[in-house]
């Protein structure tokens, strides 16, 4: 995402996690805000351009260069905001004219795209911009540097380049980049400020619905993940219980004989299954049942040793759990 002039910052680095998109848009809209709001996430940036409280353009751009505009961009922003654990919001107030140029840059008509500068008569192009009284933005860039010239009615409004914070009045940097080998240009044009006043995405898009859909989707995803996690935990728990049950059976069978297997099964059934082995109350009943039955088959000494082994195995499994 290319950099934009910061103008007059209203908010900077506001954590997105605490914000709701309808609330942000409503605040900027009712405040007749002119400028742009940029939502910066780890993998994407979203720019919302406002003109006198009207949302004139939205641009969603991913790190890989994929772009979306309008409804799709708002929807993508909602999903990002709902699901984001990081990200922040910047709001910059700009003049009406510069806002128009930003709109041109984001969603204007593309007259030139990645055009190599050496193949173009730049003088003639600049003269055409002037003679056609063009509104828009000329972007001059190489692989690692870029500069922008904003035009209103064919006259330069100001100059902006990577590394600067705001609009400059001199074209030095632009000229420098234009002189670099491999320099390219993009030319975006838009209609005048009056035309911008006719645009308002908020009239055609229900931001509240978009947001609620994203929240619902996020909630459903969250539930799915939770359910999957719970199932994994259940499986894991059931696996641990099965291992513990086998351990218990082995101890009892080794002490009591094969009949011990039946004793363990019976006591587990009485206590509602092997989950009782990790339950504070039921495990006591389970052990009492085993002790009572084993008392009929083995000596008191063997019984004591067996009960100690059982307690140790169950305590060990509990601490792992």
């Amino acid at each position: 995402m290319f950099l934009l002039p910061k103008g007059n910052p209203l908010f900077e680095n506001l954590a997105v996690g605490m914000l709701k998109l309808p609330g942000v848009i409503s605040k900027l809209s009712t405040g007749s805000f002119t400028g742009y709001a940029s939502f910066v996430f780890q993998a994407s940036t979203v720019i919302l351009v406002f003109k006198a409280g009207k949302l004139v353009s939205v641009m969603f751009e991913e790190k890989n260069g994929n772009r979306q505009t309008g409804f799709e961009a708002l929807s993508a922003l909602s999903y990002q905001m709902v699901g984001a654990s990081s990200g922040f919001l910047n709001v910059y107030k700009l003049s009406k004219d510069l806002t128009m140029c930003i709109h041109a840059l984001l969603q204007g008509e593309i007259l030139y795209k990645a055009q190599e500068l050496k193949l173009i008569d730049i003088k003639a192009l600049l003269e055409k911009i002037g003679s056609d009284r063009m509104n828009g933005c000329l972007r001059i860039y190489t692989d690692d540097r870029s500069a922008m010239i904003f035009y209103k009615d064919g006259a330069p409004l100001g100059f902006f380049h990577d590394g600067s914070q705001d609009i400059e009045t001199t074209s030095n940097e632009s000229q420098k980049i234009a002189g670099l080998p491999g320099a390219k240009i993009d030319l975006f044009s838009t209609q005048g400020v009056e035309h911008l006043m006719e645009l308002d995405l908020l009239e055609v898009v229900n931001v509240q619905n978009i947001w609620e859909t994203a929240v619902a989707h996020q909630q459903s995803e969250f539930n799915k993940i939770n359910k999957a996690r719970e199932e994994r935990q259940k499986e894991n728990f059931a696996g641990k219980l099965a291992v513990l049950e086998e351990q218990v059976k082995t101890i009892v069978v080794e002490t009591v004989g094969k009949v011990g297997c039946g004793i363990v099964d019976k006591e587990l059934t009485d206590q509602g299954g092997n989950a009782c082995l990790l339950d504070e109350t039921n495990v006591v009943k389970f052990l009492a049942g085993i002790e009572r039955s084993a008392k009929l088959l083995i000596s008191a000494t063997s019984l004591k040793v067996m009960m100690e082994l059982l307690s140790k195995a169950i305590t060990g499994a509990k601490s792992e759990h």
């Binding site: 009591v256 004989g257 094969k258 009949v259 009929l296 088959l297 083995i298 000596s299 063997s302």
Partner: peptide, 9 residues
């Protein structure tokens, strides 16, 4: 028969 491998058998 049921408890033949138990100590008490």
């Amino acid at each position: 028969t049921a408890i033949k491998d138990s100590p008490i058998s």
